[in-house]
Amino acid sequence: MIKSLVQAKGLVKHYGERKVVDGVSIQAAEGEIIAIIGPNGAGKSTSMDMMLGLRKADAGTVTYWEENYRSQVGVQLQDTPFFPGMTVMQNLRMFAAFYGQKLSRQRSIELLAISGLQGMEKLEASRLSGGQQKRLAIALTLAHSPKLLFLDEPTAALDPRARRDIHELIRELSAKGTAIIFTSHDMEEVGKLADRILLIDKGKVAAEGTAGELLMQHQSETLEELYLNKTMGAVI
């Protein structure tokens, strides 16, 4: 039986008088790839922050498969946070240690290979190019072999080859049972990768389902067309 790893129900968040998230529910099971799409400011990141415990929800609940879930969740943020002054390898070791793991040499080599950063382990992380920093940010999320991954625009600012590598990585992880929740503005990527898609607009789930279901329900030719129709009037 496929186990549900995270279930967020009816999340609500206000910033002052403004309701930025209004009853959003998201769930992910083992091996599932969930894409959250929507215009900038639609409430995607705030919903993710509430799921991660970074922001307190005004209403709603978030339930993980076990109490000690933090050590098995990986998070890649839109920005690329590293310890300034530390090398690629030092950052990898540091974040693995935060998750209570000592990074073996073998695992370090694997992570560098996954992220395409072989030979760069001694470089200061902040001196890497934007794309390389993104790759490192993803490697950091994998250092402790998480069961559940949150990826916030994982392929933004990556070249096509790196983008393809990340897509392959996401598929491989999913095949091994890792649940992945990611946000993206690239509808082609979403269509290729996601098992289920959540379209959030003005803080609400405007559409949800597989790519096929969504296209059929909303009589659209492509996900991009569906996105544009459902988010009409939004500032993109």
Binding site: R70, V73, L77, F82, F83, A97, Y99
Partner: peptide, 17 residues
């Protein structure tokens, strides 16, 4: 201040440490 500005602590908050 520098580490916070880089977003390092946001990631740290999501770890068991």
């Amino acid at each position: 201040y520098q580490q916070r500005s880089r977003g390092v602590y946001k990631l740290l908050m999501m770890t068991p440490f």
